[in-house]
Amino acid sequence: MNAAPEEITSLVGREVYSSNGVFVGEIEDIQLDLDARAVTGLALAELNHELFAGEVGGSTGVIVPYRWVRAVGDIVLVNDVIERYDAGEPEEEAAEDVARSEPR
Rank of each mutant, 00 (worst) to 15 (best):
residue 70 R to Q: 15
residue 25 G to F: 00
residue 93 E to F: 09
residue 55 E to P: 00
residue 80 D to L: 06
residue 11 L to C: 01
residue 67 R to T: 08
residue 68 W to H: 07
residue 37 R to F: 08
residue 96 E to T: 14
residue 61 G to F: 05
residue 67 R to D: 13
residue 86 D to Y: 04
residue 3 A to H: 14
residue 86 D to P: 00
residue 100 R to A: 11
residue 32 L to E: 12
residue 48 N to S: 06
residue 66 Y to M: 06
residue 15 E to C: 07
residue 45 A to D: 11
residue 57 G to A: 09
residue 94 A to V: 02
residue 71 A to C: 07
residue 50 E to W: 06
residue 47 L to V: 01
residue 62 V to T: 03
residue 69 V to L: 05
residue 75 I to Q: 08
residue 61 G to M: 07
residue 17 Y to I: 01
residue 96 E to P: 05
residue 81 V to C: 07
residue 24 V to P: 00
residue 83 E to C: 02
residue 101 S to N: 10
residue 70 R to F: 08
residue 9 T to W: 06
residue 53 A to I: 04
residue 54 G to K: 08
residue 53 A to C: 03
residue 27 I to S: 01
residue 39 V to R: 01
residue 55 E to V: 05
residue 91 E to D: 10
residue 63 I to E: 12
residue 55 E to Q: 13
residue 31 Q to P: 00
residue 75 I to R: 10
residue 93 E to C: 03
residue 67 R to F: 11
residue 25 G to M: 01
residue 2 N to H: 13
residue 29 D to I: 03
residue 97 D to P: 00
residue 53 A to D: 10
residue 35 D to L: 11
residue 43 A to M: 13
residue 57 G to E: 12
residue 17 Y to G: 02
residue 51 L to W: 03
residue 27 I to G: 00
residue 25 G to R: 00
residue 58 G to H: 12
residue 62 V to I: 13
residue 95 A to K: 15
residue 100 R to M: 13
residue 54 G to D: 07
residue 57 G to Q: 11
residue 1 M to Q: 12
residue 72 V to Y: 02
residue 96 E to D: 15
residue 91 E to K: 07
residue 77 L to S: 07
residue 32 L to I: 15
residue 20 N to E: 14
residue 10 S to E: 11
residue 10 S to F: 04
residue 35 D to V: 13
residue 42 L to P: 00
residue 87 A to T: 14
residue 68 W to F: 09
residue 66 Y to I: 04
residue 75 I to D: 03
residue 21 G to F: 06
residue 28 E to A: 12
residue 95 A to E: 15
residue 10 S to R: 11
residue 21 G to R: 08
residue 55 E to R: 15
residue 26 E to W: 00
residue 99 A to Y: 09
residue 10 S to D: 09
residue 71 A to D: 12
residue 82 I to H: 02
residue 14 R to T: 08
residue 86 D to H: 14
residue 71 A to Q: 14
residue 66 Y to G: 01
residue 93 E to P: 00
residue 18 S to H: 01
